[in-house]
């Protein structure tokens, strides 16, 4: 349970960064932290005590050994790559905003209003 709570705390830190921080780079970093936390939480749910990785090997004796749950791993595998695309898109947006307003501070962007 301690691990689940620590992972949840990581997610809350990401939410805190998105709400409070004024800097676009910090906001991108905070959204990345939220992504890490949710991926890690899914894999923590999938772990089985004494389990081994879900890859068959030639000549490996599998009697009496269990494998960890492979389904969340498959879901998280695709999620990580999508996160990479979204990070690239956020960076493109931030650079665009910097080009227009010459600042990364979102309060100043609001004041200018287009």
């Amino acid at each position: 349970m301690t691990l689940y709570l620590m992972c949840f705390a990581l997610l809350l830190i990401g939410i805190y960064g998105i709400i409070v921080k004024r800097d676009l780079v910090k906001i991108i970093i905070a959204s990345g932290i939220m992504g890490y936390a949710s991926n890690l939480l899914l894999i923590l749910f999938a772990y089985r005590k004494g389990g081994i990785y879900p890859i068959l090997e030639k000549g490996k004796d599998m009697t009496g050994r269990v494998m960890v749950d492979p389904l969340p791993q498959a879901l998280v595998l695709t999620s990580i790559v999508i996160e990479l695309g979204i990070t690239a898109m956020l960076i493109a947006l931030a650079i665009r905003i910097f080009e227009k307003y010459k600042t990364f501070d979102i309060t100043k962007i609001r004041r200018l209003k287009g």
Partner: peptide
């Protein structure tokens, strides 16, 4: 440690890639 080597590889590469492009962009 959670027995997911697939994800460890992808996450490692993801981290390198995102740090490099964030630093290069900003």
């Amino acid at each position: 440690l959670l027995q997911a080597p697939d994800l460890a590889i992808v996450q490692f590469l993801f981290e390198i890639f995102s740090v490099v492009i964030i630093v290069r962009a900003f």
